[in-house]
Design a protein around this nucleic acid. Structure first.
Lengths: 253, 253
DNA sequence: CGCCGGTTTGACCCGCGTCAAGTTGGGTGG
DNA sequence: CCACCCAACTTGACGCGGGTCAAACCGGCG
């Protein structure tokens, strides 16, 4: 039987809280169904009532909504280890959709099983609660960016955030990571248009901050990018700071 | 002894989840310290590590952050019954500040006491978790607005949201409510400037959608406002829909 | 009465959106 | 192995929503 989903989940919960061996055993006993998701189609759609949630084992996913005029806003990106719809455990009406930009592997767990786990292991419930709160903290950060930062800073911020979150799960050593997003998708996350994103990325490249090759993102000057994006990783509330950004820290002091 | 904080808290938890009589007794036993907060000063400031959270008994409060250039972004508004910093229970570093626009009355409860309550009454823990998730759902909605709606629609949406949330706690019968905010504060929430907010409000008044008298907000044409703001109250995840907006519902079908 | 925070309005400007026209490169079929 | 296609990227020209600056105006309060 495939244990990767359990491993990924355990690792994540240990990253956000502290899990003991009994908790670990209970998590290991969770019934998980693994599914391969193809790129571009919804994993969950707005308007659905769901009875399970999923842990992302591999791939790059995002959550989004459309306005009435058909504009799309991406609300969140998710990488391996994230539990993108954990909130559905308590609010099973989906007010947004959830899809993958690349083929993805996810583990589905029924709400019932999660609920049962939470009741028996309050410690695990706390870790999961905390995970959803970090999700919320990221939303707040996006609000500040969308409301008050320029397109350039906002983009820098997003690139920093993704680097930091991927570092936390070992996917971005040396600030280089796979970013399988089109400029159109970036635009929909940043509240910009493709054209502007293109120009912003050019700016970042010319200033020597980042480099893009295919679907890889290379951060050439971390502290410069963090300063530009006003990025302070504390909002990610890692239990153990993965890697601080000294410049950004100093700025905000 | 003053029981209002307990009453308000109980009412809120009953609004978001279902609480039985034993839960109720446990909630009633919470040690709460009531404090009067004066307008304009921080209740909690960004950067602090907190050991208590608070339930808003009366008054109008908001959470915000500043950018490095000193621009302010308001992240959330809170009315009686809200628990604005419940997230601090699991992440005691504050990544934003919290203040009141009017004199406010809040009840402080130590994290320890809340944590203890959660451990003994999982049902209450679930209700509180859900409360924080609704907070997150509101953030998502703001992201969509900031990223993809015009200043006009965004403003309409905010006015709808506040009306709906205040109706839920009985503070906005007939879609009339007290909105003790300057146009400057509205601007900081909407990602606009005072000047633009002023013009937007004028537009809304001229179109017969809303009326403002002193610090009161009067919604004259609810369905028109909801349509303009693309407001669909489902994202608020009320257990029992307080009052639907028929037009908005139809639009999104 | 005069101050002062908040509101209102006008004139002008700029970041980003819109529209349009290439260009590039990986994938496919002949 | 080349010809072609198409999605993604790139760049230029121009327009608009909302920002900026500046000047009243209004009303509550000392």
């Amino acid at each position: 039987m495939d244990r990767t989903a359990h491993k990924v989940l355990l690792k994540r919960l240990n990253l956000v809280a502290s899990i003991d061996s009994e908790d670990e055993a209970a998590i290991g006993a969770l019934p998980v169904t693994i599914r391969e998701i193809e790129a571009g189609i919804d994993i969950v759609s707005e308007g659905q009532y769901v009875t399970q949630c999923c842990i992302l084992i591999d791939g790059f996913t995002y959550r989004y909504r459309h306005t009435l005029e058909g504009k799309r806003q991406i609300i969140a990106f998710h990488v391996a280890g994230d539990i993108p719809d954990l909130h559905s455990l308590h609010m099973n009406y989906m007010d947004h959709s959830f899809a993958a930009t690349t083929p993805a592997r996810v583990g589905f767990v029924s709400h019932e099983a999660v609920w049962d786990l939470c009741m028996r292991r309050p410690n695990v419930a706390a870790a999961m609660w905390r995970e959803t709160l970090i999700d919320g903290a990221i939303f707040r950060e996006w609000i500040v960016g969308l409301g008050r930062l320029s397109g350039l800073s906002r983009t820098a911020h997003l690139l920093c955030e993704l680097a930091m979150r991927m570092r936390a799960v070992g996917l971005a050593p040396d600030y280089v990571y796979r970013l399988p997003l089109t400029q159109h998708e970036l635009a929909d996350a940043l509240g910009l248009t493709v054209v502007t994103v293109n120009r912003v990325l050019k700016d970042l490249r010319i200033s020597g901050l980042v480099e893009r090759e295919r679907s890889r993102m290379v951060i050439r000057d971390w502290s410069g990018l963090a300063r530009l994006g006003e990025f302070d990783p504390r909002y990610l509330h890692f239990r153990v700071p993965i890697a601080m950004a000294p410049e950004a820290m100093r700025e905000r002091a």
